[in-house]
Simulated scan of single mutants.
Amino acid sequence: MQVQVNTQDGAGGAELVERVEQAVQDALSRFADQLTRVEVHLTDANAGKGGAQDKRCMVEARPVSHKPVAVTHEAATVPQAIRGALAKASRALDTALASRTDHKGNASLRDAELP
């Protein structure tokens, strides 16, 4: 799974990118073999003017042989926005990829090889 982090005007630096990449790996590790790429977009909705919920994180996950799954979360701080978006992405991927596994995590009969 490749992780790509995009920030507004290149803000944040290498440390932020590393922390975001690690958060994505931790939150979506169980989907790693089913995802080709995860893109994270961080923006300041009010462009420095301030506000209660002005940090936005958009996560777009690209599953193999599936349509991309995109979620957005707004919060007061960047870490809160990242955590919220990754939680939403995990739930959305559960729903999108549910047909591949049964409720106990075993392979679906749809994917079983026929004799």
Rank of each mutant, 00 (worst) to 15 (best):
Q2H: 13
Q4S: 12
V5W: 08
N6P: 01
T7I: 11
Q8F: 10
A14F: 07
E15W: 00
R19A: 11
R19D: 06
E21N: 10
Q22P: 02
Q22M: 05
A23C: 05
Q25P: 00
Q25H: 13
Q25W: 00
D26F: 07
R30F: 00
F31W: 11
F31A: 01
D33P: 03
L35S: 02
T36M: 06
H41G: 04
T43S: 08
A45Y: 00
N46E: 02
A47V: 03
K49Q: 12
K49W: 05
G51D: 01
D54A: 02
R56H: 08
M58S: 11
E60V: 14
A61W: 12
R62A: 07
V64N: 12
S65G: 12
H66K: 15
V71M: 01
H73S: 06
A76D: 09
V78G: 00
P79M: 01
Q80C: 01
R83C: 06
A87W: 00
A89V: 12
S90F: 08
L93V: 09
L93Q: 02
A96R: 14
A98E: 10
R100V: 08
T101I: 14
A107R: 13
S108L: 10
L109H: 10
A112C: 09
A112T: 12
A112V: 14
E113S: 15
